[in-house]
Write a protein that binds this DNA or RNA. Structure first.
Lengths: 152, 152
DNA sequence: GTTGGTGCAAATAGTTTGCAGTAGC
DNA sequence: GCTACTGCAAACTATTTGCACCAAC
């Protein structure tokens, strides 16, 4: 794997930010330093870097993927209002072994665990039902898929 | 909400199957009964039915969404080989309250928990590392995003 | 100098939408 | 009869890819 200036810049920017940018957000950032870089290059680099393990692709199930410069185990809290992703301390991780008895035919390799909710800025957008009480995750997920502000 | 024959058929097919079809798979199924139905109509109906709560949109984070005719709480085991989704008994559910201490600013409304692994048919595609031991979920997820066979 | 990486633009895949006609209530 | 719903096709969004040139090793 060659160390091109594009690749170096993308990795560096991703490591420096605590946000979890989308490919396009990252493209906008790196363009300030390399005006001629193309979006295709950003996608290609995000792909090789995440395959190689230097970064993580976060599958937020939103319309766009987000990327995390920290490849170590930790949880993500995903805002259903704006789609932004916040890191959560790994002490809350759940071990995949907990589920090992589930199904003899299905070979479990891991779990996907994400915290869903609303960040301070999006509390106003929160469905009424959540103002009194906690409720079903999926319902909220459905309701909010649309409003993906570009998030930092 | 009107009960059109298209809507009725889509809901009926979804309730009858234990697979978790994609929109296109469902379209292929209902076309056998209503040859002129359009894919747009299938998408529109999946949207209203899931917003209304009759079905669930499963956010498998694959390239295509899948739909579940059973709106009740249960877990999904997602095959990283073919993208197919299998229901898991709700006794394994984890309560969102477990995470309530995570962050005072973030209003938690739920969690997303999915079991990742390989179904019997895809065990051959499984990365070598899993043949000896369980390993990190995300690595496998990255590796397998590509191979979404149309699943049933 | 070899070849992996780049910029560009076109292609692709999944999904959404505008529109004019249709059918459920 | 009103109007939500439909089929169709075009549009849209995120992402991928073919190609000719370039630069890291």
């Amino acid at each position: 794997m060659r160390t091109t200036k594009q690749r170096k810049l993308i990795l560096e920017r991703l490591r420096q930010t605590r946000s979890h940018p989308t490919a396009v957000e990252l493209y906008d950032q790196v363009r300030r330093f390399l005006p001629n870089i193309s979006l295709g290059t950003v996608y290609r680099n995000l792909d090789v870097l995440s395959k190689e393990g230097s970064i993580r692709k976060i599958e937020t199930c939103g319309d766009q993927n987000r990327f995390d410069g920290d490849p170590h185990d930790h949880l993500h809290a995903i805002c259903l209002g704006c789609g932004r992703v916040k890191d959560i301390d790994s002490e809350f991780m759940i071990d995949a072994d907990k589920f090992s008895g589930i199904d003899s035919e299905f070979k479990i390799t891991g779990i996907r665990l994400e915290i869903l909710g609303y960040c301070p800025g999006c509390k106003a957008d929160m469905p009424l039902e959540y103002n009194q009480d906690f409720a079903k995750p999926e319902a909220a997920l459905q309701a909010s898929k649309k409003s993906n502000k570009t998030g930092g």
